[in-house]
Computed example of a mutant assay.
Amino acid sequence: MRQIIKNSYAYMTIENTITMTLQIIKTNTNILNNFNTVRNEESFAHDNIILNKIESKLICNHVISLLKFIDELEKEIEETSIRQ
């Protein structure tokens, strides 16, 4: 996942993407690293104290949103490379 974000970040820098988007991508690297801790220590993945429903939804929705963005970006990169 970290490599995908780095690749996306490199592509977006080349394409002169707005600063806010680049900041979001940079921040998401840390969020995804912390997501592994939550998944391992605060979910049903192991014998843990479980997050409450509201926090769980926030985390899941955020990760889903990021993955959708990365998927769209990868498609755009692929289409751009095919045209060249």
Rank of each mutant, 00 (worst) to 15 (best):
K68I: 05
D47A: 01
D71Q: 09
N36K: 14
N28C: 09
L67C: 11
T27I: 05
L51H: 04
N48D: 05
T27K: 15
L73N: 06
I50L: 11
V38Q: 11
I49Q: 12
L66W: 01
F35M: 05
I24F: 15
L66P: 03
K68T: 08
E55G: 05
D47N: 11
I70D: 09
S65Q: 11
K57M: 06
E42I: 00
R39M: 10
H62Y: 14
N40P: 03
I31V: 15
C60M: 07
E74P: 00
T29C: 07
A45W: 03
D71F: 03
I49W: 04
I70N: 10
A45G: 02
V38D: 09
T29L: 15
I59T: 08
I24R: 15
N52A: 02
I25N: 15
L32S: 05
I70Q: 12
S56E: 09
K57R: 10
E74S: 05
V63A: 05
E55Y: 04
I49A: 13
L58E: 08
R39V: 09
N30M: 12
K53M: 05
I64P: 00
S56F: 03
I59D: 06
T37D: 13
N48S: 07
K53V: 07
S43Q: 01
E42Y: 12
N36D: 15
K68M: 02
R39I: 06
K53S: 10
C60F: 09
N52Q: 04
F44L: 13
N30E: 15
L51G: 03
I24C: 13
I50V: 01
F69M: 11
D71P: 00
N61T: 09
E42L: 02
I54W: 01
T27Y: 14
H46Y: 08
K57T: 06
K68D: 11
N36G: 12
V38A: 14
F44H: 08
N34T: 06
D47C: 00
N48Q: 00
N61S: 14
K57F: 01
N28A: 03
V38T: 13
F44V: 13
N28G: 02
F69H: 06
K68L: 02
D47I: 02
F69A: 07
I25Y: 15
